[in-house]
């Protein structure tokens, strides 16, 4: 029997945020949601920096086994915490110390150190940057394509439904929101058939369907189908991204 939880998830509608709500839904754990308003820069407010000094989402608080609060940030470490503590039946993980556990961590780190940062830079240069730099757009779109190619080849050659075999784990969940948003950074998922099939397989999971709409509806796929809607969404995001960059820079110069 897993411990009793008292989880609050601090999040917004982004590929990193929904990793946690999807994992929580897959585990069937109750949780409260605290929406962080990026447009109001809530992620840089002192109370939130107490929870996450990095000023990024997601973050999570819980009551630990000793009765005291625990604060966590970094999506990858939050997912490792959730499965270490609550996934006693290995629904979305493998037994610690097993070969599959280490392989799961391998792909989890690949997402957090590779796909996330590189696709994030592709988003920046494609959608948010103050000036258009063709070189930056190409560099990061190509790197994202290269990383997608690694995933596509792995799934295709091993003929496995999920990254570590027959079971969907936190390594798969970590990737989903990013792969589902491929078009946002200008990468065409149709060039990666095994990965595309994996994305659709993931999307068919009821817990994913529930978890992806936290704290707001997940609309990136629909938005991308409509060019006007895409540009409107990009303009809104561009405004707060550039504002945040300026404020960070000013603070460091003080």
């Amino acid at each position: 029997m897993a411990d009793k939880s008292d989880i609050t998830l601090y999040t917004t509608q982004t590929p990193n945020g929904i990793k946690i709500s999807i994992a929580l839904e897959e585990l069937g754990l109750p949780y409260k949601v605290h929406k962080i308003e990026f447009s109001k820069n809530a992620q840089k407010e002192p109370w939130f920096l107490e929870i996450n000094p990095n000023g990024r989402i997601p973050a999570l608080t819980d009551t630990f086994t000793d009765g005291n609060p625990i604060n966590l940030f970094e999506s990858g470490s939050i997912m490792q915490y959730l499965v270490s503590r609550y996934d006693t039946e290995y629904k979305i993980s493998h037994p610690p110390g097993s070969r599959e556990w280490y392989e799961m961590n391998n792909w989890l780190f690949f997402q957090n150190a590779g796909v996330g940062p590189m696709q994030g830079q592709a988003n920046h240069f494609t959608r948010y940057a103050p000036e258009h730099i063709e070189y930056g757009v190409n560099r990061y779109q190509n790197e994202t394509r290269r990383l997608y190619g690694v995933l596509d080849k792995h799934l295709d050659e091993k003929k496995i439904p999920y990254l570590t075999g027959e079971k969907c784990t936190i390594a798969d969940i970590a990737h989903w929101g990013w792969i589902a948003a491929a078009g946002w950074c200008g990468v065409d998922i149709d060039h990666f058939p095994a990965l595309k099939a994996w994305e659709e397989r993931m999307a068919a999971r009821p817990a994913l369907e529930k978890g992806r709409h936290v704290p707001d509806p997940h609309t990136v796929k629909e938005v991308l189908k409509n060019k006007e809607e895409t540009e409107k969404h990009a303009a809104e995001s561009r405004a707060w991204v550039q504002k945040g960059m300026q404020e960070d820079a000013d603070k460091l110069r003080r």
């Binding site: 630990f64 000793d66 940030f73 990858g76 470490s77 490792q80 270490s84 957090n112 150190a113 940062p117």
Partner: peptide, 22 residues
């Protein structure tokens, strides 16, 4: 202990997804 171990993983993740890529 899970609490300290989680914080070790948290800073490690910050290194690999933040410091390293940037």
């Amino acid at each position: 202990t899970v609490q300290e171990k989680s914080h070790v993983q948290q800073w490690l993740m910050f290194q690999i997804s933040g410091q390293g890529p940037y």
